[in-house]
Amino acid sequence: MTEQNQIQDQIAVTVALLRERLGVRGKSLRQALRRAKHRLPRRIYRRAMDLARIEAMVDHPKLRLTLDSPHLLSAAGEVQTHLRSIDLADRRKGWWLGMLGGLAFNLLAFAALLLAFLAWRKII
């Protein structure tokens, strides 16, 4: 398999991982990254954008020859390693814990304001 085919395959795997791990949709890598930009670390996002920039060039026979294949394959590997390390169960658990923490804070703040109001009105 040639390096250009490897790059195309790596781009397809990266898009599939973005769909699976982050739940973003997009027909191309660029569209998927646009939706996942704030969920990725800056370094990983930049490496993925390197892949997205050359996505159209890989199909063109003459432009394909100008690509830096080792750099692109290492970028794809780094992005895929990061995406595979995302634990979906931990993300869900973190979301629920964050929501419950916010709810608990709001209830405590309401109780404190209610007690302050009752003390101000000399009811307690």
Rank of each mutant, 00 (worst) to 15 (best):
T66G: 08
A52R: 00
A56I: 04
I54T: 08
P61V: 09
R46N: 14
R47P: 00
D59Q: 12
K62S: 13
R42Q: 12
A48Y: 02
H71E: 13
R64D: 07
H71Q: 10
P70L: 06
D59F: 15
E55G: 02
L65D: 12
R53G: 06
L72H: 14
I54M: 06
P61Q: 08
M57R: 13
T66N: 12
A56R: 14
L65V: 11
A56T: 10
R42A: 14
H38V: 01
L72Y: 12
L72G: 01
R46Y: 12
D68E: 09
P61D: 06
L65C: 03
H38L: 03
P70K: 05
R43I: 14
I44D: 05
L40Y: 04
R39W: 05
L63F: 14
T66S: 15
V58W: 02
R47K: 15
S69V: 11
D50W: 10
I44M: 07
E55F: 02
A56H: 08
K62H: 10
H71G: 04
M57W: 09
K37R: 15
L51M: 04
R64L: 03
T66P: 01
R64N: 07
P41N: 07
R43T: 15
S69P: 00
L63Y: 09
L67Q: 06
L65I: 07
S69A: 14
R39G: 11
L63D: 12
S69H: 06
K37T: 09
D50N: 15
R53K: 13
R39L: 09
K62W: 11
A48H: 01
R42S: 14
P41R: 05
H71Y: 12
H38N: 15
L63W: 10
L67K: 06
A52C: 02
L72A: 07
R47T: 04
R47L: 13
M57T: 15
A52T: 00
M49L: 13
T66I: 12
